[in-house]
Simulated scan of single mutants.
Amino acid sequence: MSASKLQESSEVRIAHSLHTNEEEFVARRRETVFQSLQKLKIHCSKSEMPNIALLGSGGGQRAMVGLLGSLVQLDKAGLLDCILYLSGVSGSTWCMASLYQEPDWSTKLETVKDQIIKRLSGPGVRWGDAFAKLKKYYYEKDIFSLTDVWAVMAVTEYVKEVCNYSYHNPA
């Protein structure tokens, strides 16, 4: 599958190894991390470079804003490029999803931060739009559950956005 087709796809890939595109991304990111560590006078070889990860916590909108604030402070301190992996649970994944809408978010963090803050401090999603999303899920998914209702209602309330993902049922 081409990179553009993969980017448009919302299917989940299940495998025992990283996708080729992710392997290439990690290799490029490792180079960025290595250069950043060298600038900070943290001496290591490329083969013995530490794998630095940042894990965001859960806790709804508070976790979303908390991770965003942590990333902004790391950027201001010149440490953002030392991070190889970014991961999170619950509310912090809402932040990550918002960041990842901009492919070069780490180089445009201030702009992305401002967009997220503007959205969070603006009006919420209209209930009609949230219900329309639920209806779409109901007709697209093989299994529709209370989790889907919770996801749409809670996320639209806290994140103030209706995601535009669709479900494709692989045959």
Rank of each mutant, 00 (worst) to 15 (best):
S45R: 13
R119W: 01
E48R: 08
V149N: 01
A77Q: 07
E48K: 07
V26D: 00
F25Q: 04
L146W: 07
E157R: 11
A27F: 12
K5R: 15
E11D: 12
E24Q: 14
V112Q: 02
S90M: 06
G69M: 00
D114R: 08
L54A: 02
D129K: 04
K118M: 11
E102T: 12
Q73W: 02
L40R: 11
L37C: 13
V125Q: 08
L74Y: 10
K136Y: 15
K41S: 15
L80P: 04
W127T: 06
V89D: 05
N169E: 05
Q38H: 08
D142E: 15
G128R: 08
K41A: 09
Y167F: 15
Y137C: 13
I116W: 14
H16Y: 14
K113N: 11
L99K: 13
E102M: 06
S17A: 15
T20N: 14
W150T: 04
W94K: 11
T20Q: 09
C95F: 05
V159C: 12
G122C: 13
D104Y: 10
S10A: 07
V155I: 12
L71C: 01
L86M: 08
V125W: 04
L6D: 13
G122Y: 09
I52V: 13
C44D: 11
I116C: 12
S17T: 09
R28G: 04
E110K: 11
Q35M: 12
W127I: 14
A53S: 13
S36C: 13
M153E: 00
V149D: 03
L80D: 01
L67H: 02
R62Y: 09
A53Q: 06
T32P: 01
I116L: 10
S90G: 07
E8V: 02
K141I: 02
Y137E: 07
D129V: 05
K136C: 11
Q35N: 07
Y137S: 05
K76L: 10
S10E: 04
A130M: 06
Y165S: 15
Y138E: 10
T156W: 08
P123E: 12
Y85Q: 03
S87Y: 00
C82M: 03
A132W: 03
T20H: 15
K41G: 10
F144H: 01
G66M: 01
K108F: 00
V159F: 03
R30C: 14
P170G: 05
L37H: 13
T32A: 10
L146E: 11
L54R: 02
G122Q: 04
S121T: 08
D148C: 05
S57Y: 05
V152G: 02
S4D: 14
K135H: 09
F34L: 12
L99S: 15
L120I: 09
I143G: 01
Q61I: 13
S87I: 08
Y100N: 09
V149C: 07
